[in-house]
Write a protein that binds this DNA or RNA. Structure first.
Lengths: 224, 224
DNA sequence: CGACCGTTTGAGATCCTTCAATACCAGTGG
DNA sequence: CCACTGGTATTGAAGGATCTCAAACGGTCG
């Protein structure tokens, strides 16, 4: 399984987590996390940091009455950047069976303290994530259901460019709904509408083919 | 005016920006930014970093049709952490006449590269902000108008504890609306309702007294 | 004073949610 | 092989929270 640790390539950011974490591989422990199992729960003590070697992870928060918000999705190669606080403020769960690499907190902290270049790279990663988070606020605060789905799909297409424009959506409709601040029904309705309009195709439940990428981009900003 | 640079104390985070930036004061330039004037615009080249010495700043994004989302507010002492990208992805504007300190990018970059401790502190700041951003996603994606206002007010009260619970809201109702993903009218209506219920008082347009803090906290999670 | 701008309040419209029914698919056991 | 079952997804109809449009209010500044 260890060879999987260095197998990923497509990162969400321009940074290379593999380079960045190369000096940590000595301390890393890789494990398999089953579908819907948690990497950690909100309230848990921060024991270390996780990287998705292969699979998919959602980071979410639950309100007392059960309402849920998915703050972010992580795919192959992504480092789950957590706060420097004592306890986790969010729950991380595997969307599908995933290979997860764990780095003890002490190792990361030591490296951050001693290696300015490493700290710089982590900082860059954190700033990129912060920017993405702020962009997502525009989605949640100001966009219509159709614009939200268009933003989600075109963003996904941009991050995971595929030869035939067929990309996989490992997460369920509920996950998408909770990520976009909508209900499952609305997500389903809008996807059906986009399909009817010929903007996308839905070969199977976890696949989307973006037929008209430009149109999708326009829709994502309400310019269609 | 230079003495103002070191005057602030109440930070949003547990880090001390003043300590952190002490070694940068040599390169810093302080200036006055008028009410509603921009520190920088979306699309501008990132020339450096800004810190609010005294005053208040909003960071926001505009959609093509004029819809606006305020991603964050910055108060006395806050460092406006920007991405390491070439251009600004958001616009920063002064909410009131503000004293703003500017640090050239080269100086910060150099320090980040050379001083692991400094980089570590910036990283901590970035992670804190990231966490706040994720929390705001819950607000924007899943909370009702009443819960949003309650969250905003109790969060503000927690960050700016005042002896008589009288805190200032320098931003306009529109700013609050654009921060919470609501309309001005809804913000106004909910504030009136909270006032009627005796949870808050509104001595003047830019002041709020939190009468029942516990109730507000409960309301912010939909447990009232 | 009077114009202006931001805020508050009211009434009707709308988009999304809620509730409900149906469809679909994989797995299981007869 | 097929019926059964549980879970997820889709589709429909009705309701509701928030938005939109509109008017009144209130403070500020010339």
């Amino acid at each position: 399984m260890f060879d999987l640790v260095c197998s990923s390539s497509a990162s969400r950011t321009n940074l290379a987590p593999n380079d960045m974490l190369a000096s940590l591989e000595h301390y890393a422990r890789t494990s398999l996390v089953k579908h819907d199992a948690a990497l950690f729960w909100e309230g848990d003590t921060v024991a270390g940091y996780y990287r998705v070697v292969h699979g998919a992870v959602r980071m979410c928060k639950l309100m007392p009455d059960g309402r849920r918000q998915v703050a972010d999705f992580f795919g192959d190669g992504d480092l789950i950047l957590v706060e420097f606080s004592e306890t986790h403020r969010f729950t991380a769960e595997a969307i599908v069976d995933s290979v997860i690499c764990f780095y003890p907190r002490s190792a990361i902290d030591l490296l951050v303290q001693s290696d300015a270049r490493f700290a710089r790279q982590l900082l860059g990663l954190a700033c990129d994530r912060l920017m993405s988070a702020h962009s997502q606020m525009v989605v949640l605060g100001r966009k219509t259901a159709e614009e939200r789905l268009a933003t989600f799909l075109s963003g996904h297409a941009r991050r995971h460019p595929k030869p035939n424009r067929l990309m996989s959506l490992p997460m369920s409709r509920i996950d998408i709904a909770d990520y976009l601040g909508l209900t499952v029904e609305t997500v389903s309705r809008v996807l059906s509408k986009l399909k009817r309009q010929g903007v996308i195709e839905l070969p199977d439940i976890h696949s989307v083919r973006v037929v008209d990428c430009d149109q999708l981009e326009l829709m994502s900003e309400g310019e269609a």
